[in-house]
Amino acid sequence: MKRPLWQWVLGWVGFVALLATAIFYAASGLLAPGWAVALLLIIWLALLVVAIWLLRTQRPLYVMVLPLVAALTWFGVLTAGENLLGWTG
């Protein structure tokens, strides 16, 4: 089934927004220890793989959710690390 053009455009907008979240994951070393930054980058790469998979399997609208998932995951991990593990910036 062929998707309308607007769905593809929104899918690619979501993909670009996901790419924009990479800077936050990469800059996490200012607050988190190295092992946590590595774990965060692995999570981000997994989200990138899911985004590519969704675009290739004709489900572009689902990609719009991934930047929100990425932002909430990043914020949640850093907040939990700060409160529970004593990470300080």
Rank of each mutant, 00 (worst) to 15 (best):
M1F: 09
M1I: 11
M1P: 04
K2H: 09
K2V: 09
R3A: 02
P4I: 00
P4Q: 01
W6R: 06
W6H: 09
Q7V: 03
Q7S: 01
Q7G: 02
Q7W: 01
Q7I: 03
W8S: 00
V9I: 08
V9G: 12
V9K: 07
G11V: 00
G11T: 00
G11F: 00
W12Q: 06
W12E: 05
W12Y: 08
W12D: 09
V13K: 04
V13Y: 04
V13F: 07
V13C: 06
F15K: 03
V16A: 04
V16C: 05
A17T: 04
L18G: 00
A20Y: 10
A20M: 14
A22E: 06
A22S: 12
I23P: 12
I23C: 14
I23M: 15
F24W: 14
F24L: 14
Y25D: 08
Y25L: 07
Y25P: 04
A27K: 13
A27C: 13
S28H: 08
S28Y: 07
S28E: 02
G29L: 02
L30P: 09
L30K: 14
L31E: 12
L31I: 14
L31T: 10
A32G: 05
A32Y: 00
A32E: 00
P33T: 07
P33F: 05
W35K: 13
W35G: 11
W35R: 15
V37F: 03
V37E: 02
V37L: 03
A38R: 15
A38V: 14
A38S: 12
L40G: 04
I42G: 12
I42Q: 12
I43M: 12
I43N: 10
I43L: 12
I43G: 09
W44V: 03
L45P: 05
L45I: 10
L45C: 06
L45T: 12
A46S: 10
L47M: 05
L47G: 01
L48A: 09
L48S: 09
L48F: 06
V49S: 10
A51T: 03
A51F: 02
A51H: 02
A51P: 01
I52V: 11
W53F: 12
W53D: 07
L54K: 01
L54S: 00
L54Y: 03
L54C: 03
L55K: 00
R56V: 08
R56A: 10
R56D: 10
R56S: 15
T57W: 08
Q58S: 11
P60Y: 00
L61Y: 01
Y62F: 12
V63T: 00
M64R: 04
V65A: 06
L66C: 02
L66F: 04
L66S: 02
L66Y: 03
P67K: 02
L68Y: 07
L68V: 06
L68I: 07
V69D: 00
V69Q: 01
A70K: 01
A71M: 07
A71S: 07
L72T: 09
W74E: 11
F75G: 13
G76Q: 10
V77L: 09
V77K: 03
V77N: 08
L78Y: 06
L78I: 09
L78K: 04
A80C: 13
A80S: 10
G81C: 10
G81E: 03
E82C: 15
N83G: 15
L84V: 15
L85D: 13
L85H: 13
G86E: 13
G86Y: 11
W87D: 13
W87A: 11
T88G: 15
T88H: 15
G89H: 15
G89W: 13
G89A: 15
